[in-house]
Write a protein that binds this DNA or RNA. Structure first.
Length: 105
DNA sequence: CCCATGACTAATT
DNA sequence: AAATTAGCCATGG
């Protein structure tokens, strides 16, 4: 198995500071260089790594939508709210402002 | 190698 | 603003 991709994703996700979020596209661009690899990124985290150990709940969609979560979207919203991120329905408020970008993409 | 699937994205209608 | 289409990538059967 080539865990390289999976591991790379987890590594980046772990770097997301509390209260901040990032998008699947950014992670994809950081690893593969293609923003369209976002699906692959989704697959990587969807296989349920270590919940909470890896803050996968800080990964949202490019348009500010929550996206999904292994433990349920509700749990994701809960966690984000607990970190100070306001959630409206399925969207993150001021999401672009809380967006955490990796070192010079 | 081919096919189907998914926590995606961008563009179009 | 919501729904559809098309593109792109890794994984598993």
């Amino acid at each position: 198995m080539d865990k390289n991709f999976h591991e790379a994703v987890l590594k980046l996700v772990k770097q997301i500071p509390e209260g901040k979020v990032t998008t699947y596209g950014e992670i994809a661009r950081e690893i593969t260089g293609s923003v369209h690899a976002a699906r692959a990124v989704g697959q990587a985290v969807a296989t349920n790594p270590y919940p909470i150990v890896v803050p996968c709940h800080r990964v949202v969609r490019s348009d500010g939508d929550i996206g999904g979560y292994s433990l349920g979207v509700d749990k994701k919203i809960r966690l984000l709210s607990a970190e100070g991120a306001e959630i409206k329905g399925r969207k993150v408020l001021n999401f672009e402002q809380r967006l955490f970008l990796f070192d010079c993409i």
